[in-house]
Design a protein around this nucleic acid. Structure first.
Lengths: 123, 123
DNA sequence: TGAACATATGAACTTGTGTTCAGGTATACG
DNA sequence: CGTATACCTGAACACAAGTTCATATGTTCA
């Protein structure tokens, strides 16, 4: 599975060596990938987006906004909550969610800006 | 499956209405999510990162850097290539890949900055 | 107390995704 | 030519992930 520093014939050993030193660790890659994964689903994406726009929303309202079932919404919110991306506030029998991760807004802004508005993407 | 503008009893109808107007479309959400999905895998993440660091790398060298098989690397590169995230340059029997999407660097920088360096994430 | 409501949860099901393996193409070189 | 090299591709497999359905928990209100 792993390819160590073997007797491999590399095309550009120097460059490979240099990159290896600066390379992010596998653990970091996993953590980062998990973060991206949270945004890699259309429904979750719309949920986060809606919460950013609204400030906070109840589960039912959020479900209505994104056009998903309440159960499904709750499941997704659980994921986001466990990952620390959103936070819940309970008021009576209503639970309000809001985005807890300040960085998400920036990340989403960057992505929206570049992948939805632009489309003249060369080099 | 879908929850239309039904006789649903919403907690905060005004806010829901307002958010609905600003909401990104489902199509946009899908496109965006696909983009994030590309970065939602540790191996692909390390590949992109390596290519950004190196400028360009052959498939074999890239496989060596990320510690994956050549076949697997080729498969992932195909995905990235079809998505327009990387571009290939063929020289003899060696194929060099480089990152073709300028926005990816920014996106990765933002993510790395916030999710790897920081960890004091409250509010 | 009991009925209606808001949300959460677990299990089952279905689909998606990454990896591996076994070839397949194309180029270089002797 | 034939062989080695560098990469690509498709199929098969194992596992992850999202959705749905049924049910549970907890809260309000009559």
């Amino acid at each position: 599975m792993t390819a160590e520093t073997n007797p491999e014939r590399l095309v550009d050993p120097d460059r490979v060596g240099a990159v290896r030193e600066r390379m992010m660790s596998s653990d970091d890659a996993v953590r980062l990938a998990e973060r991206f994964q949270l945004l890699a689903d259309p429904v979750r994406l719309r949920m986060v987006y809606a919460l950013l726009e609204a400030g906070e929303l109840s589960v039912g309202d959020l479900a209505a906004v994104v056009g998903s079932s309440e159960s499904g919404t709750s499941h997704q919110l659980r994921q986001l909550r466990l990952a620390g991306l959103v936070r819940a506030r309970k008021e009576g029998r209503v639970v309000y969610y809001r985005v807890a991760d300040t960085h998400v807004r920036l990340l989403l802004d960057v992505a929206v800006e570049h992948y939805l508005h632009d489309h003249d993407d060369r080099s």
